[in-house]
Computed example of a mutant assay.
Amino acid sequence: MSDRQKTHAAAAAFDYVEEGMTLGLGSGSTAEIFVRMLGERVRNGLNIKGVPTSDQTADLARDVGIPLLDVDHVDQIAVTIDGADEVDGRFQLIKGGGGRHLREKLIARASDLMVVIVDESKLVSTLGQFPLPVEVDPFGFSITARQIYQALSKAGVSKPDVQLRRKGDGLDPFITDGGNYILDCGCGEIPDASAVDVGLKDLPGVVEHGLFLNMARVVIVGEDHQARVMEL
């Protein structure tokens, strides 16, 4: 059922795609569905260019025939289409379950419009059930982890649980596309996302975190038989 909802959300995102656009191509399962659909439209004559947010997305885009631009050679990104791990009623997001939130945020910030495509399970009243990913420099990461715990506590998170993300084997640390570690922060509930944002940005070991605030202006929610489009 979730795949059907994701497909409906991805299909509805094409209402925001126009001929000649440069598009930010997000990462994750729903964004992957969109990229596959986009490849089909490109093969049918749609003229667009993509800027991928991850190595995995870049590989998929090439496989389905989407022409790509190097991010350092892009003047303007019209629309970024991306998924999310959580979305609240103010269009605040948690992203980074796949470990690509740094590049996703960079591309989204450089875009005129961010469109988020999700299934119904991603909608929440308050962010925090999904662990908040924080990308950190590997140097001194245990020191950074303690400081992240303190920052989250100060911002009102009750008993945060900060854990190093590991690869599937459970032994080695997960490494991001940028060569960094990720600390997954179990928060349960984030009462003040803005306070968390400010607190984490003050820490020297933090590269980026998975809170996307004041960025998404369109959220498309895939339902069983259609998609619901919400705009700010």
Rank of each mutant, 00 (worst) to 15 (best):
Met114Gln: 08
Val115Arg: 07
Val116His: 11
Val118Arg: 01
Val118Met: 02
Val118Cys: 01
Asp119Lys: 09
Asp119Ala: 12
Asp119His: 08
Ser121Leu: 13
Ser121Trp: 10
Lys122Leu: 07
Leu123Gln: 14
Val124Arg: 15
Val124Thr: 15
Ser125Thr: 06
Leu127His: 09
Gly128Gln: 11
Phe130Trp: 07
Phe130Glu: 04
Phe130Val: 11
Phe130Leu: 06
Pro131Trp: 00
Pro131Gly: 03
Pro131Met: 04
Pro133His: 10
Val134Glu: 08
Val134Ala: 04
Val134Asp: 06
Val134Ile: 09
Glu135Gln: 13
Val136Pro: 02
Pro138Asn: 12
Phe139Lys: 06
Phe139Ser: 09
Gly140Leu: 09
Gly140Thr: 13
Gly140Asn: 06
Phe141Pro: 05
Ile143Val: 15
Ala145Arg: 08
Arg146Pro: 00
Ile148Asp: 12
Tyr149Pro: 01
Tyr149Ala: 10
Ala151Val: 01
Ala151Asp: 03
Leu152Thr: 04
Ser153Ala: 14
Ser153Arg: 13
Lys154Tyr: 01
Lys154Ile: 00
Lys154Gln: 08
Ala155Tyr: 02
Ala155Arg: 07
Ala155Pro: 01
Gly156Ser: 11
Gly156Glu: 14
Gly156Ala: 14
Val157Tyr: 05
Val157Gln: 06
Val157Glu: 06
Val157Ile: 13
Ser158Ile: 15
Pro160Leu: 06
Val162Thr: 09
Val162Cys: 06
Val162Ile: 14
Val162Asn: 05
Gln163Thr: 15
Gln163Asp: 13
Leu164Ile: 12
Leu164Arg: 03
Lys167Ser: 14
Gly168Pro: 00
Asp169Gln: 12
Asp169Gly: 12
Gly170Trp: 04
Gly170Phe: 01
Asp172Gly: 07
Asp172Phe: 08
Pro173Asn: 00
Pro173Lys: 00
Pro173Glu: 00
Ile175Ala: 09
Thr176Cys: 04
Gly179Lys: 06
Asn180Ile: 05
Asn180Cys: 09
Tyr181Glu: 02
Leu183Arg: 12
Cys185Phe: 10
Gly186Asp: 11
Gly188Asp: 05
Gly188Cys: 03
Glu189Val: 11
Ile190Asp: 13
Pro191Glu: 03
Pro191Val: 03
Pro191Cys: 05
Asp192Val: 09
Ala193Leu: 07
Ala193Pro: 15
Ala193Met: 06
Ser194Lys: 13
Ala195Gln: 07
Val196Asp: 04
Asp197His: 15
Val198Cys: 05
Val198Glu: 13
Gly199Thr: 00
Gly199Ser: 02
Gly199Met: 00
Gly199Gln: 01
Leu200Cys: 12
Leu200Glu: 10
Lys201Pro: 08
Lys201Trp: 11
Asp202Ile: 03
Leu203Gly: 09
Pro204Ile: 10
Pro204Arg: 11
Gly205Lys: 00
Val207Asn: 06
Glu208Met: 06
His209Phe: 02
Gly210Trp: 04
Gly210Glu: 02
Phe212Asp: 02
Phe212Glu: 05
Asn214Gly: 11
Asn214Phe: 05
Asn214Thr: 08
Met215Pro: 00
Ala216Thr: 08
Ala216Lys: 11
Arg217Cys: 07
Arg217Thr: 10
Arg217Gln: 15
Arg217His: 15
Val218Trp: 01
Val221Leu: 05
Val221Asn: 09
Gly222Met: 10
Asp224Ala: 14
Asp224Gly: 03
Asp224Glu: 15
His225Lys: 15
Gln226Leu: 14
Ala227Asp: 02
Val229Leu: 13
Val229Phe: 10
Met230Lys: 12
Leu232Pro: 12
